[in-house]
Design a protein around this nucleic acid. Sequence first.
DNA 1: TGAAATGTTGGGGCG
DNA 2: ACGCCCCAACATTTC
Length: 484
Amino acid sequence: MASPAIVWFRRDLRLADNPALAAAVASGRPVLPLFVLEDDADRAWAPGGAARWWLSRNLAALRDDLGKAGTELVIRRGKAEQVVPALARETGAGEVHWNRRYEPAAIASDTAIKAALREAGLEVHSHNASLLFEPWTIATKAGRPFRVFTPFWRACLASEMPKGPGARPEAIRGSSVGACTLNVGDLGLEPHKPDWAGGLADTWKPGEAGADAALKQFLGKSLQRYDNKRNIPSVEGTSALSPYLQVGALGPRQVWHAAMALGARPDLADGPGVFLKELIWREFSYHLLFHMPHLPEANFDPAFDAMPWRDDAEGLRRWQRGLTGYPMVDAGMRQLWATGWMHNRVRMVVASFLTKHLLIDWRHGAHWFWDTLVDADLASNSASWQWVAGCGADAAPFFRIFNPITQGEKFDPAGDYVRRWVPELAGIPDKLLQKPWTGEAAVMERAGVRLGRNYPEPIVDHAAARKRALETWQTHIRKSSPEE
DNA sequence: TGAAATGTTGGGGCG
DNA sequence: ACGCCCCAACATTTC
C-alpha cells in the first residue's frame, strides 16, 4: 500500500487556496486528511462555546467537501503531540503537511511535533494559509517588530505583495489505508441542554460554500461604499467575513485578491481601500501576538499595570446580558448573544463602556467575547480589547470615551438597530430611544416601557462615570516620557 | 475608529 | 451709524 501524505487541518478548513493540501496532492502520494480535536479544556484560550459550535459546523462541511473530492477526513481527539505521530506510524505515512498557526501555545506544540516527526524519519512541511504577511517578514529598519499601525501598513505595502490564491485541487486521490475516524457529532462541540445555537445557525452558513456566498455578497453590495456603510450597525455594510477567516473556510489571500480584482487600491481611502486596510489590521494583530506572546494577558503598555480596575461582578453580569440601561450597549451585547457576532462599531461602544464607564478590566471583556464570538480569534481579540482600553499598541487614548447615547444618535439615527435587538423599547420615539430615562411619563406609558420594570434604569450616570474614569486614569497612569 | 470644555468669529437685534 | 450683547457655528484645546 502506498505511503500517504497526511494533511493536518487546523485553522484552514478549506480546499481552495490551501498550500498544505496542494503540496500533499502534488507529492503524488495518496492524501490522508486529518483533524485533531485537542483535549484542551484545561488550557488557556481553548476555543470558547460559540467557536466550538462553529468549528463543528465547518468540520462537517470540510468532511463533505473532501468526500466529494475523493478522500475521507480522519477525525481524532487527544493531544496532537501524540495523535499526529501515532497516525503517521499507523498508516506508514511518508510526509506530513500543515499550514502554520501563530498563537504562542500552538507554535510551541507545532515545533515539538515537527521535531518528533522528523526524528521518526518523516518529511514535514509547514505552509502559510492564514496571513498575507507573516510576522517575521515585516520589521522596522532597526529589525524590530512594529508597535504602531501606520508604519506597519506602509512596510507591508513596500514589501512583496501577497501571492494570488492557490487553486482548488480538482480531485484528490485518497489513501486506501483505512484509518478509523470519529464523527463530527462525537466531538461534543455542539451545545445541548440548552441548545443556545439556534440563532447562530440561522445567521451563519458554514464551509467554503458559506464563505464564498458571504464574500460575493459583500463585494457586490458593500465594498464600494464600505468606508461609510461599515459604520451603520443596522445595515449589512461590514464584510462579516471574520467567522470564515477564523476557521479558515476563507483565506485572506482570497479576500485581498477578490477586492483587488474589483479595482481596490491600498493607497486610496475610498471604500475598497479602507477595506484592504482592515485586512491589514488583522495582520497587525498577528504581528503583535507573534512578537509579544503575552498580549492576551498582559497590558501592552505596562503603565496600565497600575490601573485599579473595579471588581464589579454585578456590573459585568449586566453588561454581558445586555441590561446596562444604555440601549446601544444592550443592543450590541444581545446581538452578540443571539448571533455570535457583533457589528464592529458597536464592539467599540460596548468595550469602551465596560472598560471606562464601568472601569472593569479589559480581560473580562476579552474572555466574554472569546466565549461568545463565532469569530473569536486570539490575535484580533487581544489586540482590539487592548486598543479600546487604551493600553494597547497604537491604542485609542484612554480619555477617548465613547458616549453611548451620541454614538446611538449618530450611527443608528432611525433606531433600527436598537429596536431590533432591544424590542421592549421599540415603541419609544426616535428622539428618546437612546436615552429612555429622559422620557416623560405619558410618552413612556404609551410606548409600554417602565424603567426598572421591563427595561433597566442606566446602571451608571454617563457624565459621572466619564468623570470617574478620567480621574482614575489621571491618578494612576503616568505615561513615561523621554525626559523623565 | 471621541467628547466636552473652551475659544473665536460673525451676523443680527437693539438702544 | 455705531457699539454692545447674544448666540450659533465653527475651531481649538483638553481630557
